[in-house]
Amino acid sequence: MKATGTYQPVFTGARRQRLDETVARYPTRTAALLPALWLVQEANGWISDQAMTEVAEVLGLTPAYVKGVVTFYTMYHQHPVGRHFVQVCTTTPCNLCGAEGVVEAFLKHTGCGELGATSADGRFTVIEVECLGACGFATPVLIDEDFIEGVTADKVRDILAGYP
């Protein structure tokens, strides 16, 4: 693989082993693509064009194919994001329960200012997402891998304190 700048391959050592174990669960290498992309995001925080090339090589795909898949699924980040990624559901059931107020509270207390932007200190990025499947626990918020139920605007500041 052509080394561009300081790109560090993801699939070495233990992570390569995890990938190989994953590949073994499916009859095709292509089927390990979504799991492989999760591994990249776990390692790097986002999925760069170079990472897509690495995944393509490891799985026997073309970089364009991998990119087509990456851009389809919204949980894969195509550019770097804040240290903590905040996803707030605002679809109708949560919308009826004040979700937009929760979003505004997150934008204010993180200092992000607008959706999709990363805070100046690089700590947070806040986005609005579609139904998180916890409508009875409005408003659910996903911060990194933590699924937090029942968030209201007044709880936001304390929640954020737990994410340095």
């Binding site: 679809t91 109708t92 059931p93 579609e130 139904c131 499947g133 916890a134 409508c135 009875g136 626990f137």
Partner: peptide
């Protein structure tokens, strides 16, 4: 992912 549904979770 159907909005309003949270039973399978």
């Amino acid at each position: 992912s159907e909005p309003g549904t949270f039973k399978d979770r």
